[in-house]
């Protein structure tokens, strides 16, 4: 298998370099864990970077609409790997029932309330200077425009028109007070790379990714807004083979992206992951 997956070494080395830069530059750092495949890979790379340790908290934003299996997986991994799990939730919005499943919000509004606002609140409360996230450039057009080190204003806004230059692995690490940073160590990976790496390293993932009754989840989100793609892939190797042939976009099953031509871009400009 070594030779076959040699190209993953380069990706891995680059990601570890970025993770270590972030750890060196920010005292109060956290990782955002969606429990999806990408952030599982990120978590794995963090353990590799720090020789088995996870030296900062792992944050999960719980929308209360996640598929139950995801929550079980989360709690089991936190126990087994022994890291500090921090769970955030927008209780106010949930109590008031301002959600899409309740019919009181659009999908996009629901996302920004239950995810963006919940994260914002948690960051303010814990004072995290920087958050590590597992987003990738190949996922979606606006993510393609991201930097490894991406500053956000206090209001959380992302000004994609005025991003800092990033060259020769020298990242922007000097900031005006109040700036909050997103760090994206997997930015240069592709969806296939992620699965190849899961295969090579034997990284655990939620079983929802594997086909049952002719379908599987390709991208995991909240139950009401995520659907399955037709698939017969029941192993990681089969998923890799399937992805090498598909020409369907990865996030096509994420309903909030599809509401308008630029729905996802707007979500991200406000601070969505």
């Amino acid at each position: 298998m070594g030779k076959l997956y040699e190209h993953l070494d380069e990706l891995e080395n680059q990601s570890i370099f970025i993770i270590r830069e972030a750890f060196n530059k920010f005292e109060n750092l956290a990782m955002l864990w969606s429990i999806g495949k990408d952030s599982n890979v990120l978590l794995w790379l963090i353990r590799k970077a720090f020789f088995g340790h996870v030296p900062f908290p792992v944050v999960h934003v719980d929308t209360n609409y996640k598929i139950p299996e995801m929550i079980e997986f989360r709690d089991r991994l936190a126990r087994e790997w022994g890291f500090e799990l921090v769970v955030g939730q927008n209780k106010k919005a949930l109590l008031a029932g301002n959600t899409f499943p309740n019919g009181k919000a659009t999908r996009v509004e629901c996302c920004s309330l239950l995810k963006t606002e919940a994260l914002q609140e948690l960051i303010a409360q814990k004072g995290y200077e920087a958050i590590l996230l597992g987003i990738r450039r190949d996922e979606e057009g606006t993510r393609a425009k991201e930097r490894y080190f991406s500053p956000r204003k206090q209001s959380f806004e992302w000004d994609f028109r005025d991003q800092p230059p990033e060259l020769w692995d020298q990242f922007k690490t000097d900031f005006e007070p109040g700036t909050h940073l997103r760090v994206h160590p997997l930015l240069h990976w592709t969806e296939v790379n992620v699965w190849e790496y899961i295969e090579r390293e034997n990284i655990p993932v939620v079983s929802l990714y594997f086909a049952q009754n002719g379908g599987r989840y390709r991208s995991l989100g909240c139950a009401p807004c995520t659907s399955r793609v037709p698939s017969n892939a029941t192993t990681v190797a089969e998923i890799v083979a399937e992805l090498k042939q598909t020409r369907i976009a990865e996030r096509s099953t994420r309903a909030q992206d599809q509401e308008a031509e630029d729905a996802f871009e707007r979500l991200r400009a406000q601070g969505y992951m």
């Binding site: 057009g141 425009k145 028109r161 630029d262």
Partner: peptide, 19 residues
């Protein structure tokens, strides 16, 4: 030009990466 802004101005604003 996945971004609205780009379509409007008809120039590429940001470095994109595609495979």
């Amino acid at each position: 030009d996945a971004l609205q802004a780009e379509r409007d101005q008809n120039i590429t604003i940001e470095t994109s990466q595609i495979w």
